[in-house]
Each structure stands twice: as C-alpha cells, then as structure tokens.
Amino acid sequence: MARSFYQQPRQHPHTPYTVARAALEFLGDQWAALPGPWGTTGHLRSPDRIPFTVGVCEAGHLYLRNDSAGDSTHLPYDSSTDPALIGRAIAEAIGGLY
C-alpha cells in the first residue's frame, strides 16, 4: 500500500495487449491477438498457429517470445512510446524468431 504520493503506482498509457493488437496492422489479417490474464501480456498467433507472447520482464523491458521455440528478444521501447511504432517493431522482430 502506498503511503505517500511518490509511492503511487505508475500508470501506463497502454498494455502489452494494446501493442500486440497494433502489430496486427503490420502482420496481416491472418494473424490474431488475444489478451493475457489481467492485461499483463498480449498473445499473437500466426496463420500456422505458432503462438507469440508480448510482455514486460521483471526489469521492466518489453519482450517478444516465440512460445513454440522458446526464443525471445527484448525491444527497446517503454509504455510511453506510440503503440503503432512498437507494433511495427514487433512485426519486424517476429521474422527473426520464426
């Protein structure tokens, strides 16, 4: 529980699910996005049913993981970055994790 104004939780303008949905614009209409529990992750599914997770690691960095292969990468963006910019980066990073 926060005891002062400075200990209040930081509000984030968008969630991992928001940026996963933004990536759909660059991935195509064969892809799907689903929210994770409590909006803490976003899940992408490729046309050939390979699942990817978009989330935030313990250090606070955005990551993208190929859940089938177990490979992952961190993306140098934070929650104040435009979701469309992060979505484009996710779409480009997926090619390296396929």
Rank of each mutant, 00 (worst) to 15 (best):
I90T: 03
I90G: 03
S80R: 15
A2I: 04
T73F: 01
G28T: 08
Q11A: 01
D82N: 09
G39W: 06
A91W: 05
M1T: 14
Q11C: 01
C57A: 12
D48K: 01
Y17I: 10
L97P: 02
P51E: 11
G55Y: 09
A89L: 03
G36W: 11
T40E: 15
A32Y: 05
G39A: 04
T40W: 08
G28R: 07
S46A: 13
R65N: 00
Q7W: 03
G28D: 12
M1G: 15
D78W: 08
T40P: 00
A89Q: 01
P9K: 07
H14L: 11
Y6W: 12
I86K: 09
P37S: 07
P37F: 08
D82G: 00
G55I: 12
G55D: 13
P76M: 00
G60K: 11
C57H: 12
E25G: 00
H43E: 15
Q11V: 00
Y77C: 01
A2F: 09
D82F: 00
G70S: 06
F5S: 06
Y98I: 10
V19P: 05
A59H: 11
L75D: 06
I50A: 09
W38R: 12
A59W: 02
S79F: 15
T18S: 15
T18F: 02
R3Q: 15
V56Y: 06
S79H: 15
A32K: 13
R88Q: 12
M1N: 11
I94L: 13
D48A: 03
G96D: 15
G96F: 10
E58R: 08
P76A: 05
P9H: 06
A32E: 14
P13L: 11
C57P: 10
W31M: 07
G42A: 07
G42I: 03
W31K: 07
H14Y: 14
G42H: 05
P16W: 06
I90R: 00
A23W: 03
L27R: 03
G36F: 12
S68N: 14
T41G: 02
R88K: 07
G42Y: 05
L44D: 07
N66G: 06
A91V: 02
P83M: 05
H14Q: 15
T81M: 04
A23H: 05
H12D: 05
Y77W: 13
D67I: 00
L24H: 09
T81P: 01
L62T: 07
